[in-house]
Amino acid sequence: MATDIRNVSKVFSKTTALHSINLSINDGEFVAILGPSGCGKTTLLRLLAGFDSPSEGEIYMNGQCVSEKNKTTPPEKRNIGMVFQSFALWPHMNVKEHIRFPLLHHQFVKKEMKANPEKRIEEVLQIVNLQSFSHRMPHELSGGQKQRVALARAIAPKPALLLMDEPLSSLDAELRMDMRREIQQLHRITGATIIYVTHDQEEALAMADKIVVMNNGKIEQFDTPQQIYYNPRTEFVAKFVGKANMIEGIWCDEITFEPFGTSTPIQWKNIRVESQLKEKNLCPVRPEQFSVSDSAEGFPGEVMTVQFQGKEIHYSIKTELGLLTIHEDALKKPFRVGDHVSIMLKQPSMRNEYAKTSALSLN
Rank of each mutant, 00 (worst) to 15 (best):
V83P: 00
T16W: 01
Q276L: 15
T262L: 15
P348A: 05
E202F: 12
V109T: 15
N270G: 09
H314L: 09
S142N: 12
P232G: 06
K14A: 12
R46C: 02
S142P: 05
G298W: 09
H92I: 10
F222E: 12
K110A: 12
L321K: 08
G310L: 01
N245L: 06
L103S: 04
L186F: 00
E320N: 03
H106V: 01
K41A: 10
P348W: 04
E220D: 10
I189V: 13
E202K: 13
T43V: 04
P348Q: 13
V83A: 02
K318Y: 05
V303D: 10
F133C: 12
N26K: 14
G50S: 06
P138D: 10
P334R: 09
R286A: 08
E312S: 07
P348H: 11
M207A: 05
S358F: 14
T262H: 06
I247L: 07
K210I: 04
K218V: 02
F101C: 04
A206Y: 10
M214T: 08
I343Y: 03
P54S: 10
S169W: 01
I326F: 00
A150D: 11
V149I: 10
S291P: 02
G35L: 10
R100N: 07
E29F: 01
C283F: 15
T305W: 02
S170T: 08
P157L: 12
S132C: 04
R351I: 08
L362I: 14
N216Q: 14
I59N: 08
L103G: 02
F222T: 09
V8A: 01
I194M: 15
I80C: 01
H187Q: 13
M207N: 08
P348F: 06
L331P: 00
Q267P: 00
E123G: 02
L362P: 03
D253H: 05
V83M: 01
R148F: 02
V212K: 01
H106P: 02
L130G: 11
F308C: 00
K41F: 00
K318C: 12
I195L: 11
P117A: 04
T42K: 00
E140D: 04
S37P: 06
V66S: 08
